[in-house]
Design a protein around this nucleic acid. Structure first.
Length: 684
DNA sequence: ACACCTCGAGTTCT
DNA sequence: CTCGAGGTGT
């Protein structure tokens, strides 16, 4: 009894003292105690609480309210949606935004503008109730994010620029703050130094590493990553002061010891805002953290309310995206890769260059004409960038740096595989092809294609293993996949009992796949997912497709003479017929997918509509969205055209589709509107 | 014959 | 994402 009492009073005392020191540290910026002493107090409290869990109070300074590990990454509904921002890529677009806003405002005047940096990190929401951090969540899709309270609490909160667990006295009943969690460049450098010392792979860039760090299941790992945060917005506030401008908001957040970036600037003209942007661009690499642009906001909050928001972004703010980074590097050589159907694609082999957040060593050059048009030659210095922020692209040579007499690159005459068979380009074609039927490169491509997700979907049979099995002579066509010598595989290095079993199970499961997927796996020229589905639906069985004439094949809507001929030719080949004989009976008897029954069961709400999706939609995989649209009678092509009924904009949308849809005046839907559309077929 | 949709294929890196 | 090319409608 006595120990319980003394423990309780000691806990109270420790909590009080720690809270006092927190206040001194945060509010007054004047630590009243050394770090070591502070840590000792904290340690004692932690130990006491561990010994007497029933005495742990929710507002204890060690707490971890809502930080129950089981809630980590649980969905969190944002009470006020976390919207994304519209983008401007040049001065004209910035002016256009300002004009639109001016026209919407009764006064016709924007008032002051707040210019802020756009930090390259992860948007998060922090919820304080009565001054205590109760919940932290990722942005997610803007409406629903993931609970990361435990990870946020684990950040070294005594360090400035990190997240305080408690706010100073007099803070509002409810305060939901938005900010960007980022990894400072020095923390990133330290982490990589550590990786080097431990001979582990380096992390590619601070943004992804910050994201990965916040996604740790073990918060103590997150704690070591040196993450920081910049707060820049209030989502919800109850019982706080009256704020009139965004500038007030920033000042207020600062007064609560929340880290607010000092580089924000208030200006009164678009001209000055543009100057700020230019300054950002110039300073970009002198900052201790990464930015990817600037944000311009209308300062007065009453103006912000008057302007409101579109379905996806507020009208009172615009993000200026810095142009994708371009770098020069050496073009070491141009090699050719052979695709599963024999297509020879030239690609640039580059001196590794760090561009747009990752190191680039290769980039496709598409075909001979593209190489000629760009006139890039091995030995050139070339300009490289990331197209759409992801795919490396060679823009062209820096002619001034070209060595004298550098020879023009010629397309190789033979296949890079050991058989060195000729590569030929047919009249009217852009591509070269290797036509050697037993080309090992093509075989590898075919096997990979057969096992791929949209075909037979065989897990655990990836590039490495395909290569290995071909080299060992285990596989010389797709039929061999079903008679792999497991006894010998078991003896290979890197194959345990479990991995062999996994592989065997995955191969066994693939026998249940549909006819359409089998067709995809057969790797027939001109046939892809869509056309295979068409054929499967029209004929119902492989037998009937094999027995069909060119004319019968071409009768299918969407199949023309060229595809029909290609299919007919494929099945005419004796070699192919033999391979098909080797496939398991279940597969050969596969019928057009069972999904058909379900398709009919769904209400055909999207009949006659063509819905294009950009970005990821909550609750669906990328392919899944298309399937959901098609299952309801709609079409889901990959690009926007004048026939498009609506464009659905999800997470991380592509700029090109959005732009095109805007130009064509096609309705743009957010995820909520898309949900409604799917359910009822109603366009907003 | 032509324009405009679509589709397929190859591709990068984490 | 980008390029090339087949299919379809005018």
């Amino acid at each position: 009894m006595g120990t319980e009492d003394s423990a309780e009073s000691r806990i109270t005392e420790l909590s009080e003292r720690i809270r006092q020191h927190d206040l001194l540290y945060y509010r007054d910026d004047a630590p009243g105690i050394t770090d070591a002493d502070y840590d000792q107090l904290k340690q004692e409290l932690l130990e006491l609480e561990a010994a007497h869990p029933e005495l742990v109070r929710p507002d204890s300074p060690t707490q971890t309210v809502g930080a129950d590990p089981s809630t980590l990454f649980a969905p969190v509904q944002h009470r006020v949606p976390m919207m994304s921002l519209d983008n401007a890529f040049d001065r004209d677009e910035l002016e256009a935004w300002a004009d639109r806003a001016r026209r919407r405002l009764a006064t016709g005047d924007l008032g002051d503008l707040m210019c802020e940096l756009k930090y390259d990190g992860l948007a998060v929401s922090l919820r304080y109730e009565n001054g205590v951090l109760t919940q932290a969540a990722t942005r997610g899709n803007g409406r629903v994010g993931e609970d990361i309270t435990a990870n946020i609490l684990a950040l070294e909160y005594k360090k400035k620029k990190s997240v305080p667990h408690r706010l100073p006295g007099g803070s509002p009943g409810v305060l939901e703050v938005r900010g960007e969690v980022y990894m400072p460049l020095d923390a990133f450098a330290d982490l990589n130094k550590q990786q080097d010392e431990e001979e582990k792979p380096r992390y590619a860039n601070p943004r992804n590493t910050a994201a990965g760090s916040l996604r740790q299941k073990d918060p103590s790992i997150t704690a070591t990553r040196g993450l920081s945060i910049w707060c820049y917005q209030i989502g919800e506030i109850q019982g706080g002061p009256t704020l009139e401008t965004h500038n007030d908001t920033l000042e207020y957040l600062r007064s609560l010891n929340l880290p607010v970036n000092p580089k924000s600037k208030s200006v009164s003209t678009i001209d000055a805002a543009w100057k700020f942007i230019e300054q950002c661009e110039a300073d970009r690499h002198n900052l201790p953290y990464e930015i990817d642009g600037a944000v311009i906001k209308i300062d007065r909050l009453d103006f912000q309310r008057e302007l409101g928001a579109t379905s996806r972004a507020p009208r009172w703010a615009i993000a200026y995206k810095l142009p994708p980074e371009e770098r020069t590097t050496k073009l070491l050589d141009i090699h050719v890769s052979i695709g599963s159907k024999g297509k020879a694609t030239p690609f640039a082999v580059l001196e590794p260059a760090f561009v747009g957040g990752s190191t680039v060593e290769m980039a496709t050059l598409h075909n001979e004409d593209q190489v000629k048009a760009k006139d890039v030659r091995p030995g050139d210095t070339v300009v490289v960038r990331k197209a759409g922020d992801v795919i490396p692209e060679v823009l062209g040579p820096v002619l001034a740096d070209r060595p004298d007499g550098l020879p023009v690159w010629e397309f190789p005459e033979v296949c890079p595989c050991p058989h060195q068979q000729p590569l030929a380009r047919q009249e009217g074609d852009a591509a070269h092809y290797c036509r050697f039927p037993r080309c090992p490169e093509q075989l590898r491509g075919w096997i990979e294609h057969f096992a791929a997700r949209n075909a037979l979907d065989i897990e655990h049979l990836g590039e490495q293993r395909v290569r290995l099995f071909i080299d060992l002579g285990f596989i010389s066509d797709i039929g061999d996949i079903y008679s792999l010598p497991y006894d010998r595989i078991r003896e290979l290095e890197g194959f345990g009992e479990l991995s062999v079993a996994n592989l065997a199970t995955a191969i066994e499961a693939s026998k249940q796949q549909s006819l359409a997927r089998l067709l995809v796996g057969l790797n027939i020229r001109h046939l892809g997912d869509t056309t295979c589905e068409l054929l499967a639906d029209a004929f119902g069985s492989l037998d009937r497709i094999m027995g069909a004439s060119v004319e019968e094949l071409a009768e299918v809507d969407g199949i023309g003479p060229i595809i029909a001929e290609s299919v007919y030719e494929f099945f005419l080949s004796e070699a192919n017929q033999e391979i098909i004989q080797k496939l398991p009976k279940e597969l050969l008897e596969a019928s057009s997918s069972d999904a058909e029954a379900e398709v009919e069961a769904l209400p055909q709400t999207l009949e006659g509509m063509t819905i294009v999706v950009t970005g990821g939609v909550e609750g669906y995989t990328r392919d899944g969205v298309g399937a959901a649209i098609k299952a309801r009678g709609g079409k889901a092509p990959g690009s926007v055209s004048s026939k498009t009924t609506a464009l659905v904009v999800g997470e991380n949308p592509g700029a090109s589709k959005l732009e095109k849809a805007e130009k064509l005046g096609i309705p743009i839907l957010d995820e909520a509107q898309f949900q409604r559309l799917i359910e009822s077929g109603e366009l907003p």
